[in-house]
Structure formats: C-alpha cells, structure tokens
Design a protein around this nucleic acid. Structure first.
Lengths: 352, 352
DNA sequence: TTGAAAGCGATACCAG
DNA sequence: CTGGTATCGCTTTCAA
C-alpha cells in the first residue's frame, strides 16, 4: 500500500473542502451540479481512489467478507462444484463493491474457534462454504456478525442457501416411475450430511408418492467405500425382487457403480437403470452418459451473496433459508425395466 | 464489524497509557516486565484484539495480499494443481499474519486494468496465480506494488516461482534413454505457455544429451485437440523409424493418448512407452499407471509466500526467480522398447 | 450549498 | 521506562 494522494489533494485542486469531495464521491445529494462536475473531473484527472483504510476506520466497515472452508482451502478447491458456486458468489459481491477474504478454517483459527480475521475486524461477515462440524457452526451461531451457510449445514436457524435435495430425490423417483420402474434402490455414503439426508428423504417420499416398493432396504448407506457399497448392492441384485433402477447420491458414485456393474456383465440401461446427482462433468462422458439432477451452481453463489448483503444492511431481518430448485437432466442411463418390457410387451415404455 | 473494545479500554483497566499497551502488544522492548505482564493479563481477560482498520490506517499496511486468477476464480478452482499450491501459500502467509483477498481478474477490474482492491489500498501486494495475457502482466509490471508471479509467466523480470520444466523435460528423456529408447516424440498443445516451452526445450536438450534421434519432427505441437494430436502422432507411428516412446506435456493428454493407442491395438508399455507430466491424480488410476514428473505443489505456494513477504519487507531487494525441482515418478507405462529387446536380446533392459 | 472540525483506533515520536 | 499527543484518510454532524 504505497503512498497515494488523499482526499485533501483533490479538495485543494478543486478549491473546496474535503467534505464536499466526500459528498460527491459518495453521491450524497447536497452538492451543486457544477461543483460535482468540477470535482469529478479532477478526480478522474488525478486518478484518485478513496483509501480503504481511512474509510474502514471511519465507517466501521471493510466491505470484505471472510470465505471459510473446512478444513482447508486445498480440500475444497479442486472441487468443480464449489468453483462454480464461487463464480456466482464473486460476481454478485464484486458488483456490490465487496470482496472475499479467503481462509481454510484451520489456518484462520490458530487460537480461538473464531477466525482471527473476524476478531480483528478485517471482515464484515463470514460465509461458510460447504459442510462444517456441528461444534464449529455452534460457535459461529453465537456471533452477532453476519453469517451465511452456503451449501452447508442448513438445519441451523441461520441464513443459508442449499439446493433442494428433497425435491431432487422426489423428481428422480418420478422419472423412474414414468419409465415404468417399480423397484429402486438408493445408494449413499455413510456420512452425516444434511443435503444427502434431504435427497434420501425425497427419494423415500417419491417411492411412496409414485407407488414404488418401499422395502426396508430401499436405501443402502452402509459404507464410505465404493466397493463396499457395490457389494451390498450386488447382494440386493442377486436376492429376491431385485431393483430395476439405482439412484446414486452423486455422479461419482453412480459412475463407479456403473463400471462395476458393467464389469459384472450388466448392461446399462438394458439390464438396470442408473441415475446420479449433481450433474458433474463426468456425467456427460461416462458410458452411458448419466441421467442426473442438475444444481444451478452459480445461482447458489449469487443467492448467497444476496443474502449476506441483505443481512449486512439489515442485521435484524428474519433468518432467510433458501432452497434452490434442481433440474432433471435426461441422458442415456435410464430405460424401461426389462422385466416390465417382457411382462407387458405393449406397455407404454416399450411402444417408444 | 461490530463495535469491539479499543485499546483505550485496555489502557484504562491497566492504569496506563495507550502507548504502553501498544508497545506491549507489538513487543517493543521498552516496557518493564511487570507492566507487560499486567497488561497482557488484562488483554487476555477482556479478549482484546487490535482493530485492523486503525492499524492499517496508521501503518499504511493491510497485511492482505490480493490473489488474482485469470480470467475468473471459477476457471482456476476445480484445478487440483492450484488447490495444492494454494494450500502451501495459505499456510505460510497465515503464519506470517497475512491473509488473501480473492478475485478473478475480470471481476476485479471493471474499470482500469489494475484491480480496484489494489487502487483503494485494500492489499499490500498481488499474487498472480497461473498464466495471464502478456498485456496484463505488462500493466502490473509497471506498478511499484509487490508482485508475485506464481506458476505463471516467468519470462518477466519480476519475482516468480515456477517448477523447473526444463529439468523435467531432460529427466524424462534420461529415463527413456536408460530404458533403452532411441526415438521419442513429445506432444504438447499448440498453446503459448512458458512452462510448456521449458518442458519442450528440456526434452530437446535431453534428446541431444542422451543421444536420441533429434529429427525435425520430434515435437508435435500442432493442435489444441487430443484427437488432432493423436492423428499426427499416428502418422509418425505409421511412418519410417517410428518413435518407441511418447512424452505427453501433461498427464491428461498422456492418458487420452494411451486410450486412443489402446483402442488402435497398441499395448502400453509393450508396444510403446508413454510418460506424462504433473503427476495428476489420474496418473495413478490410469491403465497402465503413468510414469510422470511430480511437482511439489505445496512447496510452490510456500516459496511464493516467502518471496512476496520478502519483497514486502525489503522492496528494493533484487528480483528473485525461483525454479523448483521436479521429481520422476516411475509407474508402469514405460518399458524397454520392443525393437531393442528383439535386436539385442541380452541387452540390459531385457535381463531384468 | 458549503466548510470547519470531531473522531474512528492505532502507532510512534519525543519529552519527561 | 512511561505517557501525551500528532497523525494516518475518511465520513459526518453542525453551523454558516
């Protein structure tokens, strides 16, 4: 931050007081049109930009939000999902004159559970991107600082934006039902996650709503490992009344399951249909291309920006919890179930 | 940034002046041990943290660096390479009490080619991560602000850290030569890139140094598309004196080439050896696992942090350009060339 | 419509 | 060793 010219310099050249310059710069109305024009000309001529340090001190506002990842930046970069979320977030914030201070939770909080940059007043609020441990959210929830949970633990009474996993789960089942499926199984990682829970609830609700089998074993959530999950899936497929469709909790899992199924001789979607979730890149290039749910990721960021900006300007407004709609993307991993095709050769799915 | 207690409060409780409190907080020596202890006790008791705004104004220093991506954050997040670089960068900066302000170039620079957050003094320096258009680097190079090019255009007389692509190119050829290869071809995207140029120069130097064929066509850099590059490679393989080894400019390309080769009936490494570059994740899971060059990515970030911190404290120190060593990772995509094995059945590579 | 001056919270000089 | 005070650059109140 080298020495730059100050508001005094502008005032001197414009033959007026710094108060007037400030008023012009901040669009306070009470300056004559002529004076405003003169001052603006000088401002552009000398390339004056307001000094943030002075402004921050006076306004008690930095126009910076802290963006916190858990545990570290490295964990979350490299995730294309967040990349796009951040795109939307950054665009809207920049437009509002705000910036993002970046930190992994662990790096930011060497001493207290509250990040240093918050305690020293370097930021006006904090955005938690992605899932955080409950303990940490609890600490933050006690703060009076503007706080946003973005694609995070939305079960807290805090401003939050998440995608509507519930609706996504329901939509996927509806799609399968429309194709004629009667038995579907959902696979998810055995991993505490609010949005995953929503997807599963949506799936279950869908089963009920569209008249699919709701057996006790319609959700497999037994492990963190693809191969374990596949083992349990295989047991279902080899048992009585095997499912004709698989709902994977995300595309990565879906693709992994597909290749293990194919290695075991299954044809997809001929023998069994598979759907994913998130519309990751891999969903387009997998064999076959994967039917999945798309989340409007930039919109997730944009909505989040809106929320924390609002919270900053009106601290006492009621908590806002946004669930963003999701959209089915039909590709080639779903077909009518074979058993159905055999049993009712002239039913709708086969006519096509 | 809510109201927090100020240094006056601490001074009052400690029965001393704010000057003394400041001295204690900043470890200026001239305070008695007793007073220092008293003051520290109160500081911790009331949880006082210095207010950045006041400090910034007085010190003309924000302890924030701007981290700039081109063109946008979204382009660069989702790249695991940078994720790890940022890990190292963040760790070192945090340790030094610095933070990172995040921005995509386009978002940050709506009006002038110099980002707004720099012009308003929100940052003490700027880190350019990844390649930028020449024009933009030129604008930055005129600034007197600390500037760091991180894994970027190192041809400028500016502080920079890059991995040693030249050495990497040489090392790969040495490895191939040791395996008995006599003819190798390198494939790269037809795309201006400083580090790629280095890799190619290293490759060429290696050919010379280790006595491999240096035909005019030892580098194929004809296109941006994998399939175009493969077409040109195929022409070489089908021509006279085909290469027995392929050096791809990165692992993604290497893996793409491998699968196209395999689709055309080549056995890797039986018929032809392939090496990649960067040790991306895919290099471990490809078939066969890929021999490649590894860059110590966190170290790239850490070294960059060191450089810009140094530049900040000693603005006039000479320009520092760091080339980080790279390391060969041997996997299973390289074998002795078949022709050699046939011609000299008892030569070293075959004895093994 | 304009300007003088207070004050945001900290650091650092200089006098005691 | 300690403290009074000027100062950083800006916004805002209040008086003219």
């Amino acid at each position: 931050m080298p020495d730059r010219l100050s508001i005094f310099e502008v005032a001197k050249q414009a033959n007026c007081s710094i108060a007037t310059v400030s008023n012009v710069l901040n669009n306070k109305g009470r300056v004559s049109a002529q004076k405003r024009k003169d001052i603006m000309k000088i401002v552009t001529a000398v390339g004056y930009r307001v000094n943030s340090a002075g402004r921050n001190l006076r306004m008690k506002r930095t126009e910076i939000f802290g963006l916190l990842f858990y545990p570290s930046c490295a964990e979350i970069f490299g995730n294309p999902f967040y990349a796009e979320v951040m795109g939307g977030l950054e665009r809207r914030l920049t437009q509002a004159g705000y910036h993002l201070l970046l930190a992994g939770y662990e790096a930011a909080t060497s001493t207290s559970p509250i990040p240093d940059f918050l305690r020293t007043g370097k930021v006006d609020g904090i955005i938690l991107l992605g899932r955080f441990p409950t303990e940490i959210i609890r600490s933050f929830s006690r703060l009076k600082t503007p706080l946003l949970l973005l694609d995070s633990n939305a079960e807290w009474p805090l401003d939050s934006v998440v995608s509507d996993g519930f609706s996504g789960g329901v939509q996927l089942v509806r799609h399968l039902a429309e194709k004629g499926h009667k038995r579907a199984v959902m696979l998810a990682y055995a991993w505490e996650d609010y949005n995953i829970d929503l997807r599963i609830q949506g799936f279950r609700t869908g089963l009920r709503e569209f008249g699919l089998d709701e057996g006790a074993h319609s959700v497999i959530r037994t492990s963190l490992s693809h191969s374990d999950l596949y083992r349990d899936l295989k047991a279902r497929l080899d048992g009585e009344n095997p499912p004709t469709a698989i709902v994977a909790v995300n595309d990565t899992l879906a693709v992994a399951l597909m290749s293990m199924l194919q290695a075991d001789g299954y044809d997809i979607p001929g023998d069994i249909s598979v759907v994913g979730y998130d519309d990751e890149k891999i969903a387009q290039t997998s064999t076959p291309p994967l039917t999945t749910m798309r989340v409007n990721r930039p919109e997730l960021g944009r909505a989040g920006a809106e929320l924390i900006l609002e919270r900053t300007s009106v601290p006492k407004s009621p908590v806002a919890k946004i669930r963003l709609p999701v959209e089915l993307v039909e590709r080639e991993s779903v077909a009518a179930p074979r058993v159905l095709a055999a049993a009712w050769p002239d039913s709708r799915p086969v006519e096509e």
